[in-house]
Amino acid sequence: MSAMALRSVNLPGVGTKYEVETDKGDTIAVFFTKTGSIQMYTLQKGCQTPSAAEMSPVEARRLGNILTGAIIEADQESVEIAFSALADLRITIHTFFIPRSVIGKTIENLQVRAKTGATIIAVCRHDKNIINPPPSFAFEEGDAALVIGESDQIKKFEREILVE
């Protein structure tokens, strides 16, 4: 990671300000205001007036996901987290809708870990979340699985488990 200048200030009455100056000299400032909204300003190098966008927390998180390089499709989305302190460890979390071929099978049957290396850490069923499903967990129609792993493992999961 390059040494970009990140500055954070707590402004009394306003909230927290984060300011990043990019290598090319542009400035980006993000304010988490006490009203709950998030404002992002971008100032091009050499310009006087910044342009601003106001976001709700949900919108801000989506934007954050895009900026981390995640693929956002219509319904399925993924987040990649990079831990720069741990030799640039990159972990991807991806949501998948369970296809017909997998319905009725358990995680053990599918041999998810052995075949792909990825792990199913949560399943969303009828708007309820099942965290850390056991190996005996069997999929039903309409389930969505949250899979965690390196991006290669995620791709393998998509190729080998979901399409059979």
Binding site: G13, K17, A29, T33, P50
Partner: peptide
């Protein structure tokens, strides 16, 4: 906040 002036250097001085 409403006028989106938080980033200006004057804003910090004002605060």
């Amino acid at each position: 906040i409403e006028n989106r002036k938080l980033m200006s250097r004057e804003a910090e001085t004002i605060i």
